[in-house]
């Protein structure tokens, strides 16, 4: 394939603007993983669209932002710390009309009462502010909890799907000489072609490198996608494959390579049917 012709075919623009068909999108994404020049050209067009859209920005209806933040269960951030916009409403005392006569004691009592009143008002707003802070904090924690719960549910769901299925082949990947301690499990569902990877022990890589999973089909390696050895994902969904006699993991440059660097092979496992 001539990459230059492909870049100039209008596919980038169709893809970015959401006008490409499903198969065009899939092909484009696959080629992007392979050719950094294609990604660079896509990025350039995206930047020009973004610049043009920002130049043409219209003023938005002011109530929309408030409604959005209400809908997602939080206060708009612009209202944070802006209590000064509604200052405490302290009624002014009208003493001058009827000047208090004579008694210094009465004046003292009046002054004390005013001071007391101001003090109470201050305490009241202080407490109110504190209360608002707590409510906001509580909301934030709730959202965080819900998000964490959702992520957990999704992981559990994926795992059930991948591991519980009778069509799933479990491939235990063991370390090679280059990396004797590396280990991971591949769950390959031969019915749906889905491939999941559970990282058990893969050392952290420098930022410019990633692990890449390969399916060996009739002796030829096929890319199943790249991954990082971080702990935050328990189970990774890799690219589908219909066939595979074995799986292998290599270390490649970030973004992956089109063919594996075999001397960097980290682990390997045979996809023999266990069921």
């Amino acid at each position: 394939m001539n990459l230059k012709d492909y870049i100039e075919s209008g596919i980038i623009e169709s893809y970015v603007m959401g006008l490409a068909t499903e198969s065009e999108r899939a092909e484009f994404e696959r080629l992007c993983a392979q050719y950094p020049e294609l990604v660079a050209a896509r990025r350039k067009f995206e930047e020009s669209i973004e610049a043009s859209a920002k130049e043409q920005a219209l003023p938005t209806p002011p109530e929309v932002k408030v409604k959005i933040f209400e809908a997602i269960g939080k206060n708009a951030p612009s209202s944070l710390g802006s209590t000064s916009s509604n200052p405490p409403n302290i009624p002014s005392m009208q003493n001058s009309k009827n000047p208090v006569r004579g008694s210094g004691m009465l004046r003292f009592v009046a002054a004390a009462a005013i001071i007391l009143l101001i003090g109470m008002v201050w305490l009241y707003f202080q407490a109110k502010q504190r209360n608002q802070d707590l409510v906001r904090e509580n909301d934030g924690l709730k959202t965080q909890r819900d998000t964490a719960q959702n992520i957990l549910n999704r992981i559990v769901q994926e795992q059930k799907q991948a591991i519980g299925d009778p069509n799933t082949t479990v491939v235990n990947m063991v370390g090679t000489k280059a990396a004797p301690r590396s280990s991971a499990n591949v769950y390959w569902d031969s019915a749906s072609s889905s491939v999941y990877l559970v990282v058990k022990n893969m050392p952290q890589l420098p930022n410019d490198q990633q692990y890449q999973l390969w399916a060996l089909i009739d002796g030829k390696p096929n890319d199943l996608g790249v991954f990082d050895a971080t702990n935050d994902k328990l189970i990774l969904k890799m690219k589908d494959t219909k066939k595979a006699q074995a799986f292998a993991i290599t270390i490649e440059k970030r973004g992956g390579s089109s063919s594996p660097t075999l001397e960097k092979m980290q682990s390997m496992g045979k996809a023999t049917q266990t069921q």
């Binding site: 973004e50 859209a53 920002k54 920005a57 219209l58 938005t60 708009a76 951030p77 612009s78 959202t143």
Partner: peptide, 30 residues
């Protein structure tokens, strides 16, 4: 991570541009 401030920033930065595209599609009903 669903950071409130970050989302506010996102809105302030992009709402106008997105509103513009929405109005180019829904041309006659603000």
């Amino acid at each position: 991570e669903r950071n409130n401030q970050a989302f506010g920033f996102l809105y302030d930065n992009y709402a106008g541009a997105l509103y513009s595209i929405i109005k180019q599609i829904i041309t006659d009903n603000n």
